[in-house]
Simulated assay, not measured.
Amino acid sequence: MKTYVIGDLQGCHEQALSMLERIRAHAAAAGVAEPAILFAGDLINRGPDSLATLRHVRKLAMASGGLIDSVLGNHDLHLLAVAYGIRAEHKSDTLADILHAPDRDELIDWVRRRPLAIQTPGHVLVHAGLLPQWSADQAMALAGEVQDMLRGPDETFADFLAEMYGNLPDQWSEDLQGADRLRCIINAMTRLRFCTADGVMDFKMKESGKAEEGSGLMPWFEVPGRRSARDTVVFGHWSALGLTLKPNLIGLDSGCVWGGQLSAVCLEDRSLLQVQCPEFQEPSNKKKA
Score class of each variant (00 low, 15 high):
residue 257 V to R: 00
residue 81 A to S: 15
residue 140 M to E: 10
residue 110 W to Y: 09
residue 141 A to M: 14
residue 135 S to C: 09
residue 44 I to F: 00
residue 59 K to D: 12
residue 202 D to P: 00
residue 187 N to D: 04
residue 91 K to W: 08
residue 236 G to K: 04
residue 271 S to A: 15
residue 120 T to Y: 09
residue 24 R to Y: 01
residue 109 D to L: 15
residue 116 L to H: 04
residue 17 L to V: 13
residue 161 L to T: 07
residue 217 L to M: 07
residue 229 A to Q: 10
residue 10 Q to I: 12
residue 241 L to W: 02
residue 19 M to Q: 03
residue 40 A to T: 12
residue 266 C to T: 12
residue 87 R to N: 14
residue 101 A to C: 10
residue 74 N to W: 04
residue 62 M to H: 11
residue 120 T to Q: 06
residue 118 I to N: 00
residue 286 K to E: 13
residue 86 I to M: 09
residue 153 P to S: 03
residue 27 A to C: 09
residue 240 A to G: 00
residue 156 T to G: 13
residue 94 T to C: 00
residue 77 L to A: 10
residue 68 I to H: 02
residue 156 T to I: 07
residue 11 G to D: 02
residue 47 G to A: 03
residue 188 A to F: 09
residue 100 H to Q: 13
residue 251 G to S: 02
residue 37 I to Q: 00
residue 258 W to C: 04
residue 83 A to H: 06
residue 29 A to M: 11
residue 50 S to K: 03
residue 102 P to D: 04
residue 148 D to G: 11
residue 207 E to Y: 15
residue 224 P to Y: 06
residue 144 G to L: 11
residue 284 S to N: 15
residue 230 R to P: 03
residue 255 G to N: 06
residue 245 L to N: 03
residue 70 S to C: 10
residue 42 D to T: 11
residue 260 G to M: 01
residue 114 R to E: 01
residue 239 S to H: 08
residue 45 N to G: 05
residue 31 G to T: 11
residue 126 V to T: 12
residue 135 S to H: 02
residue 211 A to V: 11
residue 125 L to P: 00
residue 135 S to Y: 12
residue 276 Q to A: 15
residue 68 I to C: 02
residue 272 L to R: 07
residue 280 F to P: 09
residue 20 L to I: 13
residue 74 N to L: 01
residue 78 H to A: 07
residue 100 H to D: 11
residue 241 L to R: 07
residue 157 F to I: 02
residue 275 V to P: 00
residue 180 D to K: 07
residue 68 I to L: 03
residue 200 V to M: 06
residue 59 K to S: 14
residue 287 K to D: 08
residue 82 V to C: 03
residue 155 E to W: 10
residue 138 Q to P: 04
residue 274 Q to W: 05
residue 269 D to L: 11
residue 282 E to T: 15
residue 43 L to Y: 04
residue 184 C to K: 02
residue 129 G to F: 08
residue 256 C to G: 07
residue 202 D to M: 01
residue 191 R to S: 06
residue 115 P to F: 10
residue 248 N to S: 15
residue 215 S to I: 10
residue 145 E to P: 06
residue 20 L to C: 08
residue 190 T to F: 08
residue 287 K to N: 13
residue 108 I to L: 07
residue 222 E to N: 11
residue 60 L to F: 07
residue 184 C to R: 06
residue 243 L to H: 14
residue 131 L to C: 03
residue 19 M to N: 03
residue 288 K to V: 15
residue 15 Q to H: 09
residue 34 E to W: 10
residue 237 H to W: 11
residue 102 P to W: 02
residue 237 H to K: 02
residue 117 A to T: 08
residue 106 E to F: 06
residue 158 A to G: 10
residue 28 A to F: 10
residue 192 L to E: 01
residue 53 T to D: 00
residue 35 P to W: 09
residue 18 S to C: 11
residue 183 R to P: 04
residue 58 R to T: 13
residue 237 H to Q: 03
residue 183 R to G: 02
residue 55 R to L: 07
residue 137 D to T: 15
residue 92 S to D: 15
residue 265 V to N: 00
residue 240 A to T: 01
residue 152 G to N: 00
residue 217 L to E: 09
residue 181 R to T: 07
residue 78 H to C: 03
residue 205 M to H: 14
residue 242 G to L: 09
residue 14 E to Y: 08
residue 36 A to H: 14
residue 24 R to L: 09
residue 53 T to Q: 00
residue 85 G to Q: 11
residue 11 G to Y: 02
residue 105 D to R: 11
residue 86 I to Q: 10
residue 177 Q to R: 14
residue 131 L to P: 01
residue 145 E to T: 08
residue 149 M to R: 15
residue 21 E to K: 13
residue 72 L to E: 08
residue 242 G to S: 01
